[in-house]
Structures are given as structure tokens and as C-alpha cells.
Amino acid sequence: MSFFEFMSLYWPRLMSGTGVTAAQFLLGAVLTVGLALVFGLMKMSSNRAIKGFAVVYIEIFRGTSLLVQLYWIFFVLPLFGITLEKFTAGWVAIGLNAGAYGAELVRGGIMSVPKGQWEAATAINMSAARRMRRIILPQALVNMLPAWGNLMVEILKGTALVSLISVTDLMFEAKQINASTYLSAQIFGTALVIYYILARFLLTPFMRWLEGFMARKLGRA
């Protein structure tokens, strides 16, 4: 079978797998951003219970492996009565894991905003919540965006693990095709290229654009 024949035969399955990978990434990334914001802010709280809760979350999800977390969520949680569909279990595990890393980025970004900004906002009598939302977070966001670019690429790469709970993503399709054709070099080579294109030619340029866009909004560019 020529490479061309091979491709025309399996291209549709690879594409549908790529679609699932993209969906896992997008849903996981959205959850990551939400959790990162919530737990990043909670970790900076002066309330010890709130802060403690955030510290525990961050420690657990950064301190253990994504694969083990994925298995826990898919295989163990049902024993406690929480059953997630495999597709959902996939992106939820990804979001919970990356959210813990993102929370540290949020905290670091907030702390990188100069003290004078907090004081100037207080001097015009802003409430703590408004000060955070209107003054501190926008600046923190710009400062932490480069690090978020890296985290996003990590999330994309991490999605390959969901194939291990039989989510039909790109990696899962590649393994299936390999099992029936034994054309390992062709099929995993193609998967590799697709992951690379997603990361380097879609995700990274988008994050760069976002950085530039935010910098312009700050009047820095």
C-alpha cells in the first residue's frame, strides 16, 4: 500500500480523532482557566480555611501524575457514586490537573503587579473586588500570558492520555489503525506531525497574537 493509498483510507479517522483531541483541549483549557482563577485568588485569601483549601488542591494535582488522576476520575469516582462519561472524565481530569498549575501562574501574575497599583486603586476608594477585577487582574494577565502559552501546549500534549480510557481522540485512532495494519511508522509519524501542527502552527501563534493584543491594550506596544 502506498502512503497515498494509506492516507486516503485512514485520513477520515485521523481527522475525527483530531476533532476529539481539539474538543478535549478546548474544554480542558476553559476549565483550566476557570479553576486557575478561582484557586489562584483563593490561595491569596487571608481567610485560612479558604487558603488551605486552595493549597490542598494545588498540592494534590501538581504533586501526582495526570494519568493517575485520570484513572481515579474514570475508574475510582464511580465507586463513590460519581460516574462520568469517558469523554467528560477526560477533559475534567485535564482541567483539574492544569488548573493547579494555572493557579500558581495566576498568583504569580497578581503578585507581579506593583504595590503602587493597589494603593492607587485604594486611593480612589475602590472596593477590594473591583480593584482586583478592574486594576490588578488585567495587568496580571499580561504579565502571565507567556507562561500560559507554555501551559496551553502542555495541556494539548496531555490530551493524548485520554486515549488510555478509550476516548476516541487522535492518539486512540492512531493506536487502533496501528493494531490492524502494523504500519507503525506511517501512522504514528502522521499523528506526530498533526500534534506538532496543532501546537506550533495554531496554538502558539494564537497565544502570541493574544500577547500582542493585550500588550497593545496596555499601550505597551
Partner: peptide, 21 residues
């Protein structure tokens, strides 16, 4: 050190408190 809000223009800096507070 002025501490103007860098993500806002001059007029936005002046409007922030009156609008938000």
C-alpha cells in the same frame, strides 16, 4: 511614582473612580 493605571488612557484613568466608585 504617579501609579497611573497602565492599561487605561489618560481620560480612562480619570473616569475609573467616578464611574466605578
Amino acid at each position: 511614582h504617579f501609579n497611573l493605571f497602565p492599561h487605561m488612557t489618560a481620560i480612562q484613568n480619570c473616569m475609573e473612580g467616578p464611574v466605578q466608585v
